[in-house]
Amino acid sequence: MDATTTPASQSVEPHSNGTQARLNWLRAGVLGANDGIISTAGLVVGVAAATPERTAVLVAGVAALVAGAVSMALGEYVSVSSARDTERAMIDRERRELAEDPEGELAELAEIYRRKGLTAETAHRVAAELSAGDALTAHVEAELGLDPHERTNPWHAAVASAIAFTVGSVLPLVAVVAAPIGIRIPVTIAAVVLALAVTGSVSAHIGGAGRRRAMVRLLLGGALAMGVTYGIGALLGATVV
């Protein structure tokens, strides 16, 4: 048998199986890491510009890390849960419509395939065959673009976001606390630039986008955040502290 030939009896799993959930999990992680890097770096750079006290910088950084991780986790949980509730309501509505008017739903599904370029006869045959197997899945995928058997877990997204935020926050915090006072801000900026370049590359790879554009976007955003907070910290340090 040719190595490239797949027996008819052999089950072939589609490449997209589970992809949506994994991509959402990775998206939450990358966004959490980016937020942790930028927000914590901006805060510690601002505090470091205002005072040379390591304790003050450390306390502010740890507070930002904990508060940010909790906020990111809650935000992801609420966001994903709301999306799941909306999708569940749409799927339930489709299930009711199939039970109440199966012929009308079959005609609607056939029309969807006809608009995609199939002849009316072929579209009706495809719709009928798919509906005979799993009508709900066929209609939900074609009409709503959803997979009724694959839902994103809000707990997974929340945990991934919180962990990623924490990991992202640790880098600028360690850099600003461990570096000598005279060069701690340049060291922190260098560490943040490197970290954002890595996360920008990873996020672009996940989304299939251009890496250079994603990295430049993140680097500009991080530079702006640190520049603004450094200016505010230096001003307050000179006038208040």
Rank of each mutant, 00 (worst) to 15 (best):
A3Q: 13
V12M: 04
L23Y: 13
W25G: 14
A28M: 05
G29D: 00
G32D: 03
G36S: 03
I37K: 03
V44A: 07
A50N: 13
T51P: 09
T55L: 14
L58V: 14
A63H: 15
A67P: 06
V80Y: 03
S81R: 15
S81W: 05
S82R: 00
A83W: 00
E87P: 05
E87A: 15
R88L: 11
A89M: 09
A89H: 09
L98M: 10
E105G: 06
Y113A: 10
R115T: 14
R115G: 14
A123T: 01
V126Y: 01
A128G: 13
E129C: 02
A135R: 14
L136P: 00
V140A: 09
E141S: 15
P148Q: 06
H149P: 05
H149T: 05
E150L: 04
E150C: 02
T152Q: 01
A160R: 07
I163V: 15
F165R: 12
S169Q: 08
P172Q: 06
A175K: 00
V176K: 00
V176P: 02
A178K: 15
P180F: 01
G182V: 09
G182P: 08
R184T: 06
A195D: 04
S201P: 07
A204H: 01
G210H: 10
R217T: 15
G221C: 08
G221F: 08
V228D: 08
I232H: 04
V241D: 04
